[in-house]
């Protein structure tokens, strides 16, 4: 997995601005340390999908509403529920620098966010390859909290995936995923190759987001 430095800097709040050498040094140091302790894992399950005319989505024993996701899934007969995490080691590292160097903690946050994204992209590409053999195509990854898909659905996704047992993701009472650098997402499977990008901010309604591209 290659961590995209530009993405990491974007998460640190640099936007399109150039960082200085100290930040770059610190980022490389954080990447080295994070790579040593990362234990990335993922789990996914594939389900038949039904989307009704009111944008209610049914799959894997769950039914939920999302207009944005329904649009994203147009033409899909199946769906993949997906979860991935970098594991506890990165949390421990963040814990350490939260207590000992807040600058490094902030940089590590950016690095961790870019790392889990990179890992998800890698998993997604592997899935695409697998589906290609069946003549099928994958839609972009879509996560709870994105657009109008509520964050609260996350717990149900994790249950369907038995995510604690399989990859160690647990939802705290406050609704936070642990380990911190974890992702849940769904991806539509379709017979037609509607050219779709892997990631993107464009669909999201939160226009004032600090990390918007």
């Amino acid at each position: 997995m290659i961590i995209d430095r530009k993405e990491a800097l974007r998460y640190m709040g640099f936007g399109r601005n150039n960082p200085d050498e100290r930040t770059l040094d610190m980022m490389e140091e954080c990447i080295r340390e994070a790579e040593k302790v990362m234990q990335p894992r993922n789990v996914y399950r594939r389900f038949r999908l039904k989307v009704d005319e009111n944008d209610n989505i049914s799959a894997g024993g769950l039914t939920f509403y999302s207009k944005n996701l329904a649009k994203n899934l147009t033409g899909c007969g199946e769906i993949i529920f997906f979860a991935a995490t970098l594991g506890n080691g990165v949390d421990m590292l963040m814990n350490r620098y939260n207590k000992l160097s807040i600058a490094k903690a902030a940089v590590l946050q950016g690095v961790g966010a870019a790392a889990i994204e990179a890992y998800c992209n890698e998993c997604q590409r592997a899935l695409e390859e697998e589906l290609k053999e069946e003549g099928l195509f994958l839609r972009p990854r879509f996560s709870p909290g994105y657009g109008d898909l509520p964050l609260t659905i996350q717990g149900e996704f994790l249950d369907v995936l038995a995510a604690y047992k399989t990859v160690g993701i647990i939802l705290s009472d406050g609704g936070v995923m642990l380990p911190e650098k974890s992702v849940t997402a769904v991806m539509g499977i379709s017979g037609e190759n509607s050219r779709c990008h892997i990631e993107g901010c464009e669909i999201c309604g939160k226009k004032d987001c600090a990390y918007r591209r």
Partner: peptide, 14 residues
């Protein structure tokens, strides 16, 4: 003003 970014602010703070 957006000329200094979070990691830099924090390195200065440290």
């Amino acid at each position: 003003k957006g000329t200094v970014f979070l990691p830099q602010l924090l390195m200065s703070a440290e």
